[in-house]
């Protein structure tokens, strides 16, 4: 698996959130590590969570096990990026 730079992974996570949740690029660009996601974004229901995870798999070439899916990894933008980074670095 090719290594992806952290900033690239972060940009991919922003892109996925914008595309799946239908958020504007400006809004997603304003997300920082502390921005709350799950529970704070009405768009992020369980269907959308599944879409975000599957789309992250496709774009980053990673595999996410379903027992890794918990509220914590989706709590903030920073936590989701950290999770995706850990996966992308394999």
């Amino acid at each position: 698996m090719e290594l992806q730079a952290g900033s690239e992974v972060e940009a991919t996570v922003r892109g996925v959130l914008a595309d799946v949740l239908g958020l504007s690029q400006e809004r997603v660009a304003g997300f920082d590590a502390e921005t709350p996601l799950f529970g704070a974004l009405p768009e992020l229901d369980s269907m959308a969570v599944a879409g975000v995870l599957t789309e992250l798999e496709d774009r980053l070439g990673i595999l996410i096990e379903d027992d890794e899916v918990d509220g914590e990894m989706l709590e903030t933008f920073g936590q989701l990026v950290a999770f995706a980074n850990a996966k992308a670095q394999g």
Binding site: D19, G22, L44, M47, G51, T54, E55, D58, G61
Partner: peptide, 24 residues
């Protein structure tokens, strides 16, 4: 569509509509 890497006759650069949280 999009980043789907499976074999295809054509892959179109677009967000798969089935992944969007709301119909768009």
């Amino acid at each position: 569509l999009g980043h789907d890497r499976a074999p295809a006759d054509r892959t179109i650069d677009a967000v798969p509509p089935w992944r969007r949280a709301e119909p768009q």
